[in-house]
């Protein structure tokens, strides 16, 4: 499917949605707390309000803002009941972060839905749990190309990069709105005026350009897709786990190692001698080794080469 025909398909679908009052148009805006998901969804809601459409916009406040998953359902049409979008019925998923986009993909209408995603990766601390030598990030390994092979209409763009080129990386969301504007049938000037009213006065111009650039990008995505910047982490051979050796006779039980161990896998036993309580948890970071005043701890890290 070519880009232009894709855009047309979305537009047609949207037209149908507006004609059939029973069917709402569904836009799911997703991202990470702090990215502006709510702001983006409000822009859409305001557009709807301007066009005197019923609109429901639903989100969850509270813990979500603390670096967690943020999503906002925006539904509009002549009549809207449910505040949330049924799975498989989102007309557009607008993802401000790559993995968040993937998380919600099942909400996308598999036939007519448009996936617009920033290729930006925000890797949470939680995805950095495997600290073993050779350990991998828990971040999704799917590339934009893989997604595009299944969802040909996917628009994966480096909005932050585009915005930075325009002179203000904070305008990334406006770039995405520009891309989104190609999938929803609202007049461009309405988008622009709403955005102009929403952003700080001194950034109106850069946001205007950001919107235009995002929109043009989506209407005519460059041949060399920025989506390629979403690449899987190169798999390194997993090395043998670290081994921790304790020379009991040297340990004086000062307890430093137990307390500094990032993995909490050491303890002082009843003889006041250090003991490893969870050998599998040891990553071989060497903090205990370094900070043992008694030289009682040794870390052995086997490299693949050594094993061969």
């Amino acid at each position: 499917m070519s880009r232009s025909s894709h855009s047309t398909a979305v537009a047609e679908h949207h037209d149908n949605a507006l004609r059939d009052s029973a069917v709402a148009t569904n836009v799911l805006v997703v991202g990470v707390g702090g990215q502006g998901v709510i702001m983006v969804s409000k822009v859409i809601a305001l557009l709807c309000q301007q066009h005197q459409l019923q609109v429901k916009q639903s989100e969850v406040h509270g813990m979500a803002k603390r670096g967690g998953v943020v999503f906002s359902h925006v539904r509009f049409g002549e009549q809207v009941y449910s505040p949330t979008i049924p799975t498989g019925e989102a007309d557009v998923i607008l993802a401000l972060e790559w993995a968040e986009g993937l998380r919600w993909l099942r909400y996308l209408n598999p036939h007519t839905g448009t996936f617009i995603a920033d290729t930006q990766q925000i890797v949470p601390p939680f995805a950095c749990c495997n600290r073993q030598p050779g350990g991998l990030s828990g971040y999704d390994q799917l590339t934009a190309n893989e997604i595009r092979s299944q969802l040909p209409g996917t628009l994966a763009l480096d909005a932050g990069g585009i915005a930075a080129e325009l002179g203000n990386s904070k305008a990334a969301n406006t770039v995405l709105l520009g891309a989104l504007s190609t999938a929803l049938e609202f007049p461009v000037e309405d988008w622009q005026s709403l955005i102009a009213a929403a952003v700080p006065p001194q950034t109106v111009e850069v946001n205007r350009r950001a919107f235009t650039t995002g929109r043009e990008w989506a209407l005519n995505p460059p041949a060399s897709n920025a989506a390629e910047s979403v690449t899987p982490v190169v798999l390194e051979p997993v090395r043998a786990p670290a081994e921790l050796e304790i020379t009991e006779a040297w340990c004086k039980g000062c307890d430093i190692c137990v307390k500094v161990c990032p993995e909490r896998c050491l303890l002082l036993n009843e003889r006041e001698v250090v003991e490893i309580s969870d050998p599998a948890a040891c990553t071989g970071c060497r903090l205990c080794e370094w900070l043992c005043p008694d030289f009682a701890i040794r870390i052995h890290i086997q490299t693949v080469e050594a094993q061969v």
Binding site: M63, G68, F126, A127
Partner: peptide, 15 residues
């Protein structure tokens, strides 16, 4: 999960 996507664990964290 569709498309073979394991949703990324992104629990709320302290700021």
């Amino acid at each position: 999960a569709e498309l073979g996507i394991e949703p990324l664990a992104r629990p709320p964290v302290l700021c």
